[in-house]
Design a binder for these strands. Structure first.
Lengths: 210, 210
DNA sequence: TATCGAGCGTACCGTACGGTACGGTACTGG
DNA sequence: CCAGTACCGTACCGTACGGTACGCTCGATA
């Protein structure tokens, strides 16, 4: 998947404030995301907005990238891997993924990106995919492969195994949220959900010694 | 989930043609879905559109319901259920669900509904959920329960079991499509995917005699 | 044949919003 | 103290689109 032209330069503090204003407006309801509203909320002039971001799409793109840059956790290398640490890693991934996709910000952002994917031009959808679904895939797959190398997991294709993991974790959550269902999970429910998903994944792909 | 006021009366043939025009325009790109474009495409006057559907939202709502009315397959009763027929039933569900969510029409419609869910008012999202995710849930759960009654499956909560099935079938397909990835599956891939999902589901919930 | 309603096509209105222009202000460097 | 820069606030422009009004045709009914 093409992420669509690398980010040019990191936003200044003032620019970050503007992008946060955009995020806030997104969360408050997708339809009030006008350039006027952004300028008012961020206490800046529209002219500045256009100077910094070119046009509305540029502003949206910068916002998506800004949010993505905050979500990325560092990818720590996996060295020792026994049944317990593998399980912990997977649980961490599941919890953080569920936390992300159930957050108001993510829901709002994904709504914008999905809507944008309908009308071509400037693919926010691609950026969101690259920084969401694909980014976590690239982080999980090494763990799965390390698990296989340690004899803890068995699968032929790590991509396919990851997709199953993804499905077991997310189930119907994301589409229900995107379509407007209330359904807010607290940290406990997320943890239980993650536990269940990891249990099921290990039941499918785990070797005896887990 | 509230479906949002039952459908008033079935559309006339002429009205169906109008709604099909709306669907066609949705598929061609979400942004050209203007009342003018619909009137032109359907060879009718805007005044008629407003007379029949009240306003733009009414037209969209009618379109979503119209599409939903076409997707609903009859729910046949489940009587005899052995391991083979259970598997067949689940495979049928998986195939038809994958076929639906990968169809251009469904993607376009879901995009509209998701976008609409951002700005409150007239929840298309609720209607889509009710006729998609929840409708299939209500059709699958009786089968799961029959499978449990026949000693073929083991689970405590059929809703939860269904959600796992849903996740195993859909995985990341829907979100990737909604976010604009190309990814078109042909009938063969769908069938293989459905097979895999059913295998995995039975591995998790099946009793020995499957 | 006269009347009537349904509906097509087109013209029109109001407004919201993307984008631009411009005056005013504060800070920076010489 | 002056020039330059960056930016705020506001006014402005053009257009696209939701919604309305109106004249016309056509088929049905008496």
């Amino acid at each position: 998947m093409e992420a669509g032209a690398a980010a040019p330069e990191p936003p200044s503090v003032r620019q970050q404030a503007v992008l946060d204003a955009v995020l806030a407006l997104m969360v408050e309801g997708g339809d009030q995301l006008t350039m006027d509203a952004v300028a008012r909320r961020a206490s800046c002039s529209k002219e500045t907005l256009y100077k910094w971001y070119g046009d509305r799409d540029g502003l949206l793109t910068a916002t998506v990238r800004w949010q993505a840059s905050r979500v990325h956790a560092g990818r720590e290398a996996v060295q020792t891997l026994d049944g317990t640490t593998l399980r912990e890693h997977l649980q961490d991934f599941a919890v953080s993924w569920l936390t992300v996709i159930t957050s108001r910000t993510s829901v709002a952002l994904n709504r914008i990106a999905v809507a944008h994917a309908g009308s071509r031009k400037s693919n926010l959808g691609g950026i969101v995919l690259a920084n969401g679904r694909f980014a976590i895939g690239e982080r999980v797959k090494p763990v799965l492969e390390a698990g296989r190398a340690a004899g803890l997991l068995a699968f032929a294709d790590s991509e396919s195994a990851f997709r199953t993991f993804f499905g077991l974790v997310g189930r119907d959550i994301q589409i229900r949220l995107l379509l407007g269902e209330a359904l807010d999970l607290d940290a406990d429910e997320i943890r239980r959900d993650a536990d269940r998903a990891v249990d099921q994944f290990l039941a499918l792909y785990g070797q005896a010694n887990t």
